[in-house]
Design a protein around this nucleic acid. Structure first.
Lengths: 339, 339
DNA sequence: TTGTAAGCGTTATCAG
DNA sequence: CTGATAACGCTTACAA
């Protein structure tokens, strides 16, 4: 008499229990793989579950278990980067794969506005997730602080902000810088310089160290220009400074692809051809690398690996394992036409 | 005496009630913005909440309210597309923005393997979300079916598979095809053809219709080559066929960027210059569009708008509003060098 | 091996 | 305006 549409009521353990003719406790034990369930009960329950279409209610489960089997994936990136940087998609996919294999959910939280920050902080505090993967947190990121206050098992992709004891996964900046500089040397360049950026960050100083490692005795500090940011304009300015100081320069390692793009612009303005007169290499394999003409030889981040590792780190903490605080991932060189 | 570390126990309404000296019911009313809370109670509660650091437990809330204020964002795309297609990131961001404004969470569910399909179906059935946004579902997508069986308020980005009554948001394929063809005409081409693809899909037939609309009397069916797929090779073959039939062709509207890229390859092989001899335009503004040489003039999907609209559609259904079943979004033309 | 019953932390109804 | 108290659907001792 009373059916308008409306959503179908979900079957509960109780319904299954009635149909199967056993108690709710037994249903629960069956569902959770408890070995102490007789074969006969098992059969009855299986049939009943199929009949009523039972699926355990997540909220009830979370409430009583105090666990959600969900890990947050928090991205705090400017809008444009999220869309354009292929790395972020790869990290996401890698993390999803690892979590999925461990039967965990991934809750992607995008922080795009002030309002989002607050909402996410509340979400985390509300116990909706067991752990968190944090991509590119800002210094003094409020979200990172919430994670720390909650003692939420977490792993950062990239260096965590401040002096947390949090686990993190990073690429081997020094080793990769060393490797790409070596390849640049291999092209026969004799006067190789570097536009070093962001030396106040680990990534920046390590890339410079790797450059120096590769050059060894031939390292000439006069061929290193230090700029503040990983930016296009810093690259342009840096290259101009280098060109002033050492007009015979024939190879440049730029600390990032954006810097490299700026440097190439300066070289073009100065009438130097790339790669004929000057070889240029970058770092990151970001969208910049494909936009330059010629396309940039650069260091590709193992994006999926970073995501996978970060997820693994969180899962291990959840399991109570002792986990490394820091994981270094080797990255790959993509050789295109700029050197 | 007893403190090893371990996670701090979360404060509950009960704790707040004790500190504030009122009942749990009153706390709950305050937290949920019920107006029937005296000023004195309010003050006491505010202080108590701050003191004990209370944040409502999400699971308990969900359980009793039978709502989660969470909307799933389901992506079912091949791996590579997820990373490379800038549209998907935009849709995600747009949906997040709309949901965030309505104080809802977005749970991003990526389906990458068989296992994922199952996990996601379970997740949805478990009542973890109030609604779903589905991007690019497959025909007979099991997830789409679960959504339908659950009568979960949903919105598709793109045409929903099968004959569901689900709401969806699409771009105006016909109008956009009309517009870009018109611009191609505007460049002075006299013999304009089309490589029409996927005519068994709405998007395919509508793009052809838009092309015909723009040409009006000048439409010549002999200049239309029909190919099965939106693919590079179909584009190459289609162009070759067109070149055979009408060697004097000087303009081509390809049904997608991939098709356009294939067509350009065929033109190059035939010794025709683009855009000097033949103008080419595509559709989608996918990664292909920037890879061709010269870069492709094409139709850009309003990605963020699609995501925002889809989210809005779901939120409206949640609110019980009567919602449109279909939303058409106008898209934008990106004029580059290929025509 | 199974049933019973006590919570998990909220919200909501209903008297006061 | 406020306090009890009964759900919400599940897991988990504890008894049997």
């Amino acid at each position: 008499m009373s059916t308008t549409s409306g959503r179908p009521r979900r079957a509960t353990v109780h319904d299954v229990a009635v149909v199967a003719g056993v108690s709710r406790g037994t249903i629960s034990r069956y569902v959770n793989g408890d070995p102490y369930v007789s074969a006969s009960a098992r059969h009855a329950i299986e049939a009943a579950i199929a009949e009523v279409g039972y699926v355990p209610n997540t909220a009830a489960r979370h409430l009583v278990m105090q666990r959600t089997e969900t890990v947050a994936f928090i991205v705090h990136e400017p809008h444009s980067l999220f869309i354009e940087d292929p790395n972020i998609g790869g990290i996401l996919l890698g993390a999803n794969a690892a979590l999925s294999e461990a039967d965990h959910q991934m809750a992607v939280l995008i922080i795009d506005t002030e309002r989002d920050t607050e909402r996410v902080a509340k979400y985390l505090s509300g116990g909706s997730v067991d752990g968190a993967i944090i991509v590119s947190a800002r210094a003094y990121d409020p979200v990172a602080r919430v994670v720390e206050r909650l003692r939420l098992p977490a792993a950062f992709v990239g260096h965590p902000p401040g002096a947390t004891s949090a686990a993190f996964v990073v690429i081997d900046n020094r080793g990769s810088a060393h490797a790409i500089t070596e390849r640049l040397i291999g092209t026969g360049r004799r006067r190789i310089g570097m536009i070093a950026a962001a030396l106040d960050r680990d990534s920046g100083s390590e890339r410079l160290a790797g450059f120096a490692d590769a050059l060894g005795d031939r390292y000439d500090d006069n061929l290193v220009e230090r700029v503040p940011l990983y930016s296009y304009s810093a690259g342009r300015d840096g290259m101009n400074a280098l060109l002033d100081r050492a007009p015979d320069i024939d190879g440049v390692f730029a600390a990032s692809d954006a810097v490299a793009a700026g440097a190439m612009e300066a070289l073009r303005a100065a009438g130097r051809r790339v790669p004929e007169d000057v070889g240029v290499v970058g770092f990151d394999d970001s969208a910049w690398a494909r936009r330059t003409l010629p396309a940039l030889s650069t260091v590709r981040q193992p994006a999926e690996g970073l995501g996978r590792q970060a997820a693994t780190l969180v899962l291990e903490q959840l399991r109570g394992d002792i986990t490394p605080r820091e994981v270094l991932l080797e990255s790959e060189i993509v050789w295109r036409e700029s050197a």
